[in-house]
Design a protein around this nucleic acid. Structure first.
Length: 512
DNA sequence: CGTATTTGACCCGCGC
DNA sequence: GCGCGGGTCAAATACG
């Protein structure tokens, strides 16, 4: 699948590039024609002057007028040319990004077909919360969407799918997630029928996610965010069942269990970063076996979106890390499921700067871990977003995923998180914004810019969201993140509006 | 009184 | 095999 998709994407990109080139040619042609036109005109004055004895003044006037017109036209043409050049550059960049992504992806595939699965999962995300109906279409369209995304930079669909072969764990997760939002639905599709029922919680601890036997990895999502509150509000209800002091961190690690649904296997760990106490590391594990609250869904969607953005952007730095979409997708899934967890300690993420994801391997785990680092300082979300359109789309947000199997890809998200949370909670503006963004993305339209801007705005605007997202990042090191910080991140969102917020708070509070 | 949190003990996996 | 550390259980306690 990945391969195909990748190839398709590539083709699309190439096509797009060619198109741009063509456009450039056309424009060039036009320019030449215009120049040709101008050329004659230039000589004409002199000729006229020379040859036309009549009213020289008039001729002069006419000539001047013409010259003025020509100048104007030249200016216009220059502008057009500049635009074309810009577009071309942009397309080229995108193409490179895609190529890089593909390269990174390939290795695993080639090496081990099985690896693909490693990710185990096929993950699909659908940001659009509501769309229940589309699942299949989504799946089908996913490819296209990706292509589009690649081209444009952002994508709309936010669906990521991976089909792994078997891997139950991921599947489960995705499934679970889906419940709530719809996303899940599709996940299974590919063939892997996912037994809804399976959700077995057979095991006590961990959720179904992992098939014990299979070396599959459990998906974990770690969010690092700056947050004053004891826990991030993620829209789900949590009950604290334990607390422990981890070895390298004086701050106790709290263990929470999802209480939204009976028997929900999802757990989350919350711990403050030893290096920077303001950073909250939240790790989510498992898949919800119940529908997620709207707020949670919204958050997940946002996260997914962000993730997507990040992944697509990978080109910049991510290179390898990003490589595997699958991993990312998995991550997304979890997000959507709201399994947003942060695994703080475990993961590797170290992202340093916001933008450069440094791939860190997390050798240890058998889990595939997705880390969202919200702590990174976002330059300006909006600006970043805008950039997306232009070039580096993702500067601001980045995800790294790490899957145990391959290598870890740490994901760091810089900005989005915060908004995420807020979005989740509020159906209000932020949410609407998010939705809007999502919709936009979904639409082929593409304007990345708008989308990105929208998201960025939403994110930046909502502190709560930020905090939520922020939490995501990886655990262990906050390394980089600490550096960053800026505004976006974790501000506790003071306002969680709405009833939901209350509940959310409650939950969050409980967590704490 | 019911529910949530706290906290020590227990279980399990991993490395030496 | 032993010790360490992470994760979970469950009794005790706190809170509304």
């Amino acid at each position: 699948m990945l391969v195909f998709e990748g190839a398709a994407v590539k083709e699309e990109i190439c096509a797009a590039d060619e198109r741009s080139v063509e456009v450039g040619k056309v424009s060039t042609r036009i320019l030449s024609e215009r120049l040709a036109m101008e050329a004659p005109s230039r000589p004409s004055p002199s000729i006229q002057e020379d040859s036309v004895p009549l009213s020289q003044e008039e001729q002069l006037k006419n000539t001047k007028t013409e010259m003025d017109e020509v100048r104007e036209e030249n200016g216009r043409l220059k502008t057009i040319l500049a635009h074309i050049v810009k577009d071309h550059q942009y397309l080229q960049k995108q193409y490179f990004d895609i190529v890089q992504q593909e390269q990174s992806k390939r290795p695993p595939e080639t090496t081990d077909p099985s690896d693909v699965e490693e990710p185990d999962e096929l993950v699909s995300l659908s940001l659009g919360t509501s769309s229940t109906g589309q699942k299949k279409e989504d799946m089908i369209s996913t490819k296209k969407e990706r292509e589009e995304e690649d081209e444009e930079g952002l994508t709309l669909g936010l669906h990521c799918r991976f089909e792994g072969t078997r891997k139950s764990p991921s599947d489960h997760e995705s499934n679970l997630c889906a419940d709530s939002s719809s996303e899940e639905a599709k996940e299974e599709e590919p063939g892997e029928p996912r037994p809804p029922t399976e959700i077995p919680k057979s095991l006590r601890t961990d959720d179904d996610e992992v098939p014990q036997q299979l070396p599959v990895k459990k998906a974990r999502v770690t969010i690092r965010a700056r947050c004053d509150a004891p826990t991030m509000i993620d829209g789900c209800q949590w009950r604290k069942y334990g607390q422990k002091i981890a070895k390298g961190n004086p701050c106790p690690r709290a263990y929470y269990r999802c209480t939204v649904g009976a028997g929900c296997p999802v757990r989350k760990q919350v711990q403050r970063c030893a290096e920077d106490m303001s950073i909250l590391i939240t790790t989510y594990q498992g898949t919800h076996n119940h529908p997620l609250p709207i707020s949670a869904t919204a958050m997940a969607s946002t996260a997914a979106a962000m993730h997507m953005l990040g992944s697509s952007a990978s080109g910049q730095g991510m290179g390898e890390a990003i490589g595997s979409l699958s991993s990312s997708s998995a991550a997304i899934t979890s997000l959507s499921g709201l399994n947003f967890g942060l695994l703080g300690s475990t993961s590797s993420a170290r992202q340093q700067s916001s933008y450069l994801p440094i791939p860190s391997h997390s050798p240890t785990s058998s889990y595939s871990t997705i880390t969202l680092d919200l702590t990174a300082p976002p330059p300006s979300s909006t600006s970043q977003l805008s950039q997306l359109g232009g070039f580096p789309r993702y500067s601001s947000t980045r995800f790294n995923f790490s899957s145990s199997e391959s290598s870890i890809v740490p994901a760091s998200w810089s900005d989005g998180y915060s908004s995420y949370e807020s979005l989740a909670y509020h159906n209000t503006p932020s949410q609407s914004i998010l939705q809007k963004a999502i919709d936009t993305t979904a639409a082929p339209a593409l304007n990345q810019h708008p989308l990105t801007d929208t998201i960025a705005k939403a994110i930046t605007s909502d502190p709560s969201f930020q905090s939520a997202v922020a939490a995501a990042i990886t655990s262990s090191n906050t390394s980089s993140s600490s550096q960053q910080q800026n505004s976006l991140f974790l501000q506790p969102s003071p306002n969680l509006p709405g009833s939901k917020s209350a509940s959310a708070d409650h939950n969050g509070g409980s967590i704490n």
